[in-house]
């Protein structure tokens, strides 16, 4: 569960992108975050994902107030509790597909052997249909996004943060990605999806509109 209370944020000395925002995102739910461009959808995800520090207010993860946590402590939470899916997969082009999926294990402390096993399982579930020793440059955008999804789910995070996860995907790949996110929510994870796509938002349990 993510509990956000009185959150305000702006980039640098600029105006507030998010101003006094409060909301509770329950565990086991898939919540859409909507709003026109520049309203702070992605920013809210990054604040919830502890990549940004708010000007004021607080973000709590499963009851833990993250406001005063140090960088290593926030990083630790990201590596063990949070999973990110970006609009473009942001894969490491120098490594294989499987190595990309298990990259987070370096920071979460998961053993490499266990990570490889779980990575293979996840890749089989998304039906990648290409050898896992291929490099990201050798696969399509839809396949890359499935790889990124597997990477986000490797450590079974309590919170999954997806920023326009279907933005570059064909309908079939988009459907598969949303189904996989829904499956994560069904296991108790809190899934936040920033999107302006009505189809995506229509598959969410709840939609928060930023305006």
């Amino acid at each position: 569960m993510i509990d956000i209370d009185g959150l305000s944020f702006g980039y640098g000395a600029g105006p507030a992108v998010i101003d006094d925002f409060s909301h509770t995102f329950p565990a086991g739910s898939m919540v859409g975050i909507s709003g026109t461009s520049g309203r702070g959808k992605s920013t809210l995800l990054y604040l919830a994902g502890l990549l940004l520090r708010p000007r004021s207010g607080r973000v709590s993860l499963d009851g833990i107030d993250t406001t005063g946590l140090s960088d290593p402590a926030r990083s630790r939470l990201r590596s063990t509790q949070l999973g990110f899916v970006f609009q473009d997969a942001v894969l490491d082009t120098g490594r294989s597909i499987l190595d990309n999926v298990i990259e987070g294990s370096v920071y979460s402390g998961m053993s490499r052997t266990a990570a490889r096993e779980r990575g293979r399982t996840l890749l089989a579930e998304v039906d990648l249909s290409v050898p896992i020793d291929r490099r990201p440059g050798q696969i399509s955008g839809g396949q890359a996004q499935r790889v990124a999804l597997c990477r986000a789910l490797l450590h079974e995070p309590r919170v999954v943060l997806a920023d326009e996860p279907t933005g570059n995907l064909d309908p079939e790949s988009a459907d598969l990605a949303l189904s996989r996110l829904r499956a994560a929510a069904a296991t108790g994870a809190c899934v936040l999806i920033a999107s302006h796509d009505r189809t995506v938002l229509g598959r969410c349990d709840d939609v928060v509109v930023l305006d």
Binding site: S75, R76, S79, F86, V90, E103, S108, R151
Partner: peptide, 16 residues
């Protein structure tokens, strides 16, 4: 830059 951003998102601390 994106590589380091991705690593931060995946849980790398500044020290790491």
């Amino acid at each position: 830059r994106r590589d380091f951003g991705r690593r931060r998102a995946l849980g790398a601390s500044r020290g790491q």
